[in-house]
């Protein structure tokens, strides 16, 4: 492959995953201008490192990893917006039982709310509320949810992007989703989507 062909292929590959790259950058920087700069910088770095791409079928995890690394080295420090939740980013290893217990405890109230007759109304509000709840997640969980749930990467691919074992992705997906549900429940209570009767005096 000539360098012109390689560049054409690279350009097409970028174009093919540009929305995903921008989406990941948005979830990381939480700012459109920074997200655009981050994507541009990542594309430049990716072209410089094109020789490290061993399997072209794995272009997506490869460039996601470059973007994530670029964010950590150049953008994270600039972030001035504090994380609104105090969940511990690193309380994730060896806590499978705790997470499962929380999932079960949280289930009943959330399930009851989700299945109520006002669900359609709640559904209309949830799109933007989910984005707000995602913004509140600690970064490690937010990125895992984006890579797996939004971008459809396997645990192995997400692990490759973040440079962690696949088991860590599995754990982060559980905790990330659990925290998202907790945030959505709290929003539903605060905004009156859940009546006093439905709350039954309990919270997840």
């Amino acid at each position: 492959m000539t360098s012109t062909e390689a560049k054409t292929w690279f350009g097409q590959s970028i174009e093919g995953c540009l929305d995903s790259l921008y989406g990941l950058a948005m979830r990381l920087t939480r700012n459109a201008a920074d997200a655009e700069d981050l994507v541009s910088e990542s594309v430049t770095k990716a072209w410089s490192a094109i020789g490290t791409l061993e399997d072209r079928n794995r272009f997506r995890p490869w460039i996601f990893r470059i973007l994530h690394n670029c964010y950590i080295s150049d953008y994270r420090k600039k972030s001035v917006r504090p994380v609104a939740y105090s969940y511990d980013d690193y309380a994730e290893e060896g806590e499978e039982d705790d997470i499962t217990s929380l999932l079960i405890k949280q289930s009943a109230d959330f399930l009851s709310w989700w299945g109520n007759p006002e669900r359609e109304f709640a559904n209309k509000l949830l799109g933007k509320d989910i984005l707000a709840a995602m913004e509140k997640l600690p970064e490690a969980f937010r990125v895992a949810v984006v890579l797996v749930n939004v971008e459809g990467l396997s645990y192995d691919e997400a692990a490759e992007v973040l440079g962690v074992p696949p088991g860590t992705i599995r754990s982060r997906m559980k905790r990330g989703r659990t925290l998202l549900q907790k945030a959505l429940w709290e929003h539903a209570v605060d905004s009156g989507l859940i009546s006093d009767n439905e709350m039954k005096g309990s919270k997840p």
Partner: peptide, 19 residues
Amino acid sequence: LIKKSAKDTAPEKLQTRLK
């Protein structure tokens, strides 16, 4: 719902910038 809500479209100016 998460997938639908968190899907973004890259702005046109970014597409032009990258080209």
